[in-house]
């Protein structure tokens, strides 16, 4: 939890327009991602400048944490360093959906060990049926009906 000790600073932060907060939050995240990616690839800002045909000072300004990137600049950087820096809302939703399907797929693969009680054969069979029904419906994207279907089994 961040603690602010001086009230004048907290008051100033509270008066900051939301768009400035968003600009700095996203810009600094992008800057850190670029910096970390360059380091991971054994590159530096000079190398990035060369790849983009820009001056070193321009790259330095971009990574200052407050820069107002254009989409074009972001996409050019993405192209040369090979990572995605920003996602649209739709893209983020698609990724989340793919991730959820992947999680369910893995659950289905491991589920007999996780969900079945071996002390009663009848329970064992019905437990497998319930989980399989849930998984199948969830994978098709219909999680609310998946739960009710599993209860009816």
């Amino acid at each position: 939890m961040t603690k602010i000790y001086q009230q004048w600073f907290a008051d100033m932060l509270a008066k900051t327009p939301l768009w400035i907060n968003r600009l700095v939050d996203v810009s600094s995240d992008i800057a850190v991602n670029i910096d970390d990616t360059l380091a991971a690839k054994g590159m530096n800002q000079k190398d990035l400048a060369k790849l983009l045909g820009k001056k070193d000072s321009q790259i330095s300004k971009w990574l200052a944490g407050k820069h107002n990137f254009t989409l074009k600049t972001i996409f050019l950087i993405e192209e040369v360093i090979g990572i995605k820096l920003i996602y649209s809302r739709q893209e983020a939703a698609e990724i989340e959906s793919r991730h959820s399907r992947e999680v369910m797929r893995r659950m289905m693969h491991f589920e007999p060990r996780n969900t079945v009680k071996y002390n009663d054969e009848r329970n064992m069979i019905s437990s497998i049926k319930i989980q399989a029904t849930y998984n199948k419906a969830a994978l098709s994207g219909n999680q609310s009906s998946a739960y009710s279907q599993s209860l009816q089994s």
């Binding site: 900051t16 330095s60 990574l63």
Partner: peptide, 26 residues
């Protein structure tokens, strides 16, 4: 005002999330 606000916000981001990284300073 815009520059001051950005600096203040960046200081908070450094403290909360990124640490004071080389890229922010000269």
């Amino acid at each position: 005002s815009e520059t001051i606000s950005k600096i203040n916000r960046l200081i908070i981001k450094m403290a909360e999330k990124h640490g004071n990284r080389d890229i922010y300073f000269e």
